[in-house]
Design a protein around this nucleic acid. Sequence first.
RNA 1: GCGCCCGUAGCUCAACUGGAUAGAGUGACGGCCUCCGAAGCCGUAGGUUGCGCGUUCGAGCCGCGCCGGGCGCACCA
Length: 568
Amino acid sequence: MDTFQSLLTRALSHALAAAGLPASAEVVPATDARFGDYQTNAALILAKQRGENPRALAQKIIEHLEVAEWSEPPTIAGAGFINFSLQPEALATHTAQLLQDERLGVPLAETQRRIVIDFGSPNVAKPMHVGHIRSNVLGDTLARIAKFLGHVVIRDNHIGDWGTQFGMVIYGWKHLLDRAALARDPIAELVRIYKTANDLSKSDPAVREACRNELVKLQAGDAENLRIWNECVGLSMKEFEAAYEILDVHYDIQRGESFYNERLPGVVKRLKKSGLAEESEGAICVFFRDIPELAERPCIIQKSDGGFNYATTDIATIDYRVHDLGADTIWIVTGAPQQLHFKQIFEIARREGFTTDFRHITHGSILGEDRKLMKTRSGDNVPLRDVLDEAVVRAQKIVEEKNPDLDQTEKDQIARTIGIAAVKYADLSQYRMTDYVFSWDRMLSFQGNTAPYLQNAYVRIRSIFRKAGTEFVAPNELSLTEPAELNLARRLAQFAETVPQVLNDFRPNLLANYLFELANAFHAFYEACPVLKAEETARATRLALCELTARTLRRGLDLLGIQLPEKM
RNA sequence: GCGCCCGUAGCUCAACUGGAUAGAGUGACGGCCUCCGAAGCCGUAGGUUGCGCGUUCGAGCCGCGCCGGGCGCACCA
C-alpha cells in the first residue's frame, strides 16, 4: 500500500507533466498543522528557475492536480506553497487498510542490498562501559531497520582480540595472576594484570622486554601462550554475551581481529605489488598525495619492526566481507575519533577497485564530568553493568510505588523491561553526533520523552483490551469524527513515511521522535475519547485505533530494540 | 598549525536535508482523577538559533571569517 506522501507526490508529478512543467518535485509533511497535512514548494522552485510568478504557477499546477480521492481541494498559501489537507474519509479508509497490513504500510526498499554492519567491537580483557551503549544500540537498531526494509543484513562483531596488549596480558597472567580474583570477576582481574604489567614495563626495561617476548611467542603460535590467549578471549566473550543478552543486542557472526591474522601478509604483498604501498622510514605505507586533506597523512600497513597493525586488519576485513560474505554495502559504526582512519581505509579499497558502498557511521562521545572523553584508561568511566543495574533498581522503586499489587516476579520482570528500555531510548532518541556529559538522571529518566512514556501508552491499550474481554476484530469501516481521533489516525499513517527515512542519514532519533509523538497523540485521544463506553460505531472505530496504535508502537519499538510490558 | 564534529528556551534535545509565526521534554507556575491505568492530559511563562558578513523570493540549515567546546593528525587499536 502507498503512503499519502507517495500518493500525493505521484499526483503532483502527473499534474506537473500535464501542465508542461518538469516533473520532479516532492510533497512533504506540512511544517505546521495549520497549513494542513502535506505541502509542496514545487511552484516556488519552478518559478525561480523560469522567472515566473510563483502563485500564478501554483494556480496552474492546482488546475491539473487530481487528488480529490484523499485530499480536500489544495490551497495556495504564502509565497506559493500548495497545501493539502487529508479528508477524514480517506484517513478512515487508510487506517482500515493499515490494520490489514503486516508491514503497517512501510514499503520495502526499492533495491535489496546485502549489508554487513560492523558495530560494538569490544576489546578482550577490557570492561564494557557506558560508552559501549551507543555503538551497540545504534548499530543494532540500524540492522533491525535495514532488515525490516528488506535488505539482507549480516551483523558482525569485530572483536578486538589480537594486538600488542596481549604481550602484557600474558606476562601478567604468568607472573601476577590471582586465581581467586579471576574466579570472582574475570574482567576486573584481567584489567588489573594488564595495568600492572603496563606500569611495570614503563619503569622496568626487563619487564618491557619480557612482554614483547610473550607477544612474539603468541604470534609465532606458542602453545601455552595460545592457551592463555584463548582463555582470556573466552572469559571476555562470556562477559560480552551477558551484556548483549540484557541489552537484547544480537550478532549474526563474530569475526575477531585474530580471524584476519593469517591474511595480513597477503594484504601487504598485494598492495606493494599493485604499487599502492611503498616503503617510508622503514614502514610500509600507502600515501594519498593527490588528496589534499590526506596528503600529509599516510596509512601505515606494516610497521618498521615488520608487525602489522589495525589498518592492515581492516583492509583484510573489507576484503573478507566483500569477497567471502558477498557484501555490496558495508556500514561501520564507531565513535568519531576513527574518522581519519576509515577515510584512509575506504580510499585504499577504492584504489584497489572495490565498488562497495562504504559508510562510516560515527557517533558522538559520552563525556565525563570534566567534559573530557571517558577513556578506558582513565578509570573514571562508568561500567556498563552499573548503569543497567541502576536502571533496573530505579525502575523497581517506581513500579513498587505505582503498582504495589502485582506479584514480585511480575514486578521484577517489568522493572527490567522498563529500566533497560529507558537506557537504550535515552541514547537512541537523540542525534547520534552530539556529545553529552554522562549523568545518571538523564540516562535513567522515566518521564517525558522516554521509553516508559511510550510503554505506558501501550500498557493503557492492553488494559482496555483486557477490560473489553473480547478478541479484536478489525472493522470494515471506520468513522473518524473527533479531532483527537483524526490526529491519531494522521500519526499512524506517518509511521510508513518515517521508518525508511531513518536510513537516509542513519538517524534512529527520527523514529524515536515519531513514536513519542504517536504516544502523545494516543494519550490525548485516550483523555478525550472514551473507548469502552462509547456507542457501537464509535467504539469499534476507537478499538481499531487502539489496536493499530499498539501494533505501531510494538513494531516501532521493536525496530529500536526496545521491549514492551503488558502491565507496568 | 591542519582536518573533522558540535554550539538552538535555565537544563536536555527536535526541527523530515533551503520553507511559512523555530517546536518538545524537563524544571517553574496554574488547572484536570465519582469516569477505559494521573508513568497521563490541558494551559501559562521562557529565544537576537554563539558572533559578523554573504548567497536568494526565503537561512537554525548553504558559503566565508571569527569565538567557544570536543576529537584526530607515522608505526596503540
